[in-house]
Design a protein around this nucleic acid. Structure first.
Length: 458
RNA sequence: GGCUCCGUAGCCAAGUGGCUAAGGCAGCGGAUUGCAAAUCCGCCAUCGUCGGUUCGACUCCGACCGGAGCCUCCA
């Protein structure tokens, strides 16, 4: 379930600036978001409630909080009273006194600085809904509490989100929900690290260069604008840094992005850029070569194999042999341990080695003994299951190049390879090597394998 | 200033109070190959610095240095 906050100050301001309506802008942003997710292969969102479609739910939630004495109306606004919430700040280890809170024009309408708005009185020209406190709109945090309650109930298993939302958003969600329901909102809170743009120089290794305000004594002097600018340079999020992300999305296979994201623990920040993505793409080649090899040996496309679920996998591993079973166990244990995808991927690389060795040792490219072929199939089915868990290698990579002449190119290559094979048979290696060298220069790699010569574009 | 988190090989990145500190990229040596490519085998780190706790720390504590995020405006 993914909540869509389609009404807030930012959207109101932005839609006014663009001369469009809030609803339209929100719809556009949501569509854009879903499109990016789809490209990355993120599917399976069951529910996507919108704040504007749950105003009644939200109002009822706020009324409940007022009735219990956790919130108060004030001149058309409604605020959450943090002093009535004994454990306010527990998620981020913050005490009410240390929380500076929302200031600005609303400050004098609040009892304490840390109180936050549940309902905001509409200003002229702003979108508004009728409420017991007059026309207005929901505050930022309340929609998530109200909608999760409506769809998941007062308590659910996992609440996720970016590390940048921990405070105040999630902290305030907890305050609202737990004050009303008197039970824990979520059993687990999972926060993912943020993506950072790799340094401007494209340097992967180097830490992003400190911005102007990095000297601690100068920090106090830095204007808010400078701080925002410095932030935008390192943190990719929201609208500020989304552009470079979209560019990269266009240039790289979505699965390379997945691979990069999965290669580190979800809680760690990640350097995102051309070079890291290139390295991830390279790392995937070993898998893709194995899958191509498997297809040559078995005639079966790895990408067409069914992704088994865990139960089916449990029942079927034995056929793949002891090594495969051990690796699968390790993979599953790693994933069960707070999604340790780095280790899960490491076992996958081990798996590649095991399968390659198996093909080597039994010379499966030359002959096809029934028993070994069955084991090979079983191994690949396990790999299919595990890579499927990570959403990796779901589709066959498109060969680079291609185009309208692809059929002709294939025919020509066939011819060239045949001529070269004859030369090799005649021990005319000078000619054979010349052909290969020239092809390499043209971006085509030849591989002389036991079962024939293959070619691919580099 | 307050609250979090991080600092592991050339680079990316797991992990652990004592057992050979995963895996990938790059590099090097070997097997294989007519030569290559691919594949396989092997090599390549004492874990930011300084102290402390401990029989023993990279793993715990403290300080320091370096880096990231949040708190300050708005959500």
């Amino acid at each position: 379930m993914v909540n869509i906050t389609d009404v807030d100050d930012k959207i109101i301001v932005e839609s006014a600036a663009r001369g469009t309506t809030m609803a339209k802008l929100a719809a556009e942003m949501t569509a854009d978001y879903l499109e990016n997710l789809a490209v990355l292969g993120v599917t399976g969102i069951d529910r996507m409630p919108k704040a504007t479609e749950h105003i009644g739910t939200i109002i009822a939630f706020i009324e409940g909080l007022i009735a219990k004495g956790h919130a108060y109306a004030s001149d058309g606004d409604v605020y959450f009273d943090v002093t009535k919430d004994a454990d306010y700040g527990k998620l981020t280890n913050r005490s009410v006194e240390r929380t500076q809170g929302e200031g600005g024009s609303t400050a004098e309408r609040k009892r304490s600085a840390a109180d936050f708005a549940l309902w905001k009185k509409a200003k002229p020209g702003e979108p508004e809904w009728e409420s017991p406190w007059g026309p207005g709109r929901p505050g930022w945090h309340i929609e998530c509490s109200a909608m999760s309650k409506a769809l998941l109930g007062p308590h659910f298993d996992i609440h996720g989100g970016g590390l940048d939302l921990v405070f105040p958003h999630h902290e305030n969600e907890i305050a609202q929900s737990e004050s009303l329901h008197d039970c824990p909102m979520a059993t687990f809170w999972m926060h993912n690290g943020l993506m950072q743009a790799a340094g401007a120089a494209g340097k992967v290794g180097g830490r992003p260069r400190g911005e102007a305000g990095s000297a601690e004594d100068a920090a106090a002097q830095v204007s808010a604008a400078d701080q925002a600018a410095a932030q935008a340079a390192t943190k990719i999020s929201k609208s500020t840094g989304a552009e470079p992300f979209k560019n990269l999305l266009g240039r790289h296979r979505p699965e390379a992005i997945r691979m990069l994201l999965l290669s580190t623990h979800y809680r760690s920040p990640i350097q995102f850029g051309e070079e890291p993505l290139g390295e991830s793409a390279r790392a995937m080649e070993a898998f893709e070569r194995l899958f191509a090899r498997y297809e040559r040996v078995s005639g079966t496309s790895f990408y067409a194999l069914p992704c088994r679920n865990r139960r089916e996998g449990d029942a079927a591993v034995a056929a793949a042999g002891a090594e495969a079973k051990a690796l699968r166990d390790k993979f599953l244990a790693a994933m069960d341990d707070d999604f340790n995808t780095a280790i899960a991927i490491a076992t996958l690389f081990d798996f590649v080695r095991v399968v390659n060795k198996f093909i080597d040792q039994h010379s499966l490219e030359a002959k096809k003994p029934v028993a070994e072929m069955a084991t090979l199939d079983a191994m690949l089915l396990v790999m299919r299951e595990l890579t499927g868990v990570l959403g990796l290698f779901l589709t066959e990579p498109k060969a680079p190049g291609g185009g309208a002449d692809e059929g002709l190119v294939a025919k020509l290559m066939e011819l060239v390879i045949e001529i070269r094979a004859n030369a090799r048979k005649a021990k005319d290696f000078a000619t054979a090597d010349l052909v290969r060298t020239k092809l390499t220069e043209a971006g085509i790699v030849l591989e002389d394998r036991p079962d024939g010569t293959g070619w691919s574009r580099k």
